[in-house]
Amino acid sequence: MSFVFWLLAAITVAGGLAAVLLKNLVHCALALTVVFTGLALLFLQLDAQFAGFAQILVYVGAVAILVVFAILLTRSSETPKDGGVFSRTWGAGLVIAAAVFAVLGWAVLQSEAGLPHETSVPNVTVQQIGEALMGRYVLPLEIVALLLTAAMIGAVIVAMHEKGDAK
């Protein structure tokens, strides 16, 4: 439980709050990038170098850019005419989220004594991860490859201009 962990946790949670609370959607996307970077640094703090750098590549590099493009293409950064950014049923949503956090936090604090204590730093190299991906996890890897191809084609078809569509 180091100072670095608390600092990273504070940055990540503050970024998350900003991402869902800010009015301008471009600012939300920037706050989302802060969350992704904070999580990648938390992964590095957990000695998961490969997952940390994959997080930076996939989320900061691709998903955040995709979100910014979607915001600009749909002109959502303009605030709605009546000014409100929260839906009519925001109270119920807030209550549900608070209840979920209460249950999760209660479960973590209740089971804290049974959680495993500090273990030695796992010595996992990228070579081991690659061998596991090509050996034991080769079938899931192929399925993910198929899923990514299908998702790419699907996203292009869904967002494609239709024939005869005005503009």
Binding site: L46, A70, F86, G105, L115
Partner: peptide
């Protein structure tokens, strides 16, 4: 008692923030 609890609480808080955002905001993005 263990660092794991800290990470789990941060994850729970982030999950609740995401859920609140998905349930309360008006914009689909």
């Amino acid at each position: 008692a263990t660092p794991l609890a800290g990470y789990l609480l941060v994850a729970a808080l982030l999950f609740a923030i995401g859920l609140a955002g998905a349930l309360t905001r008006r914009n689909a993005i």
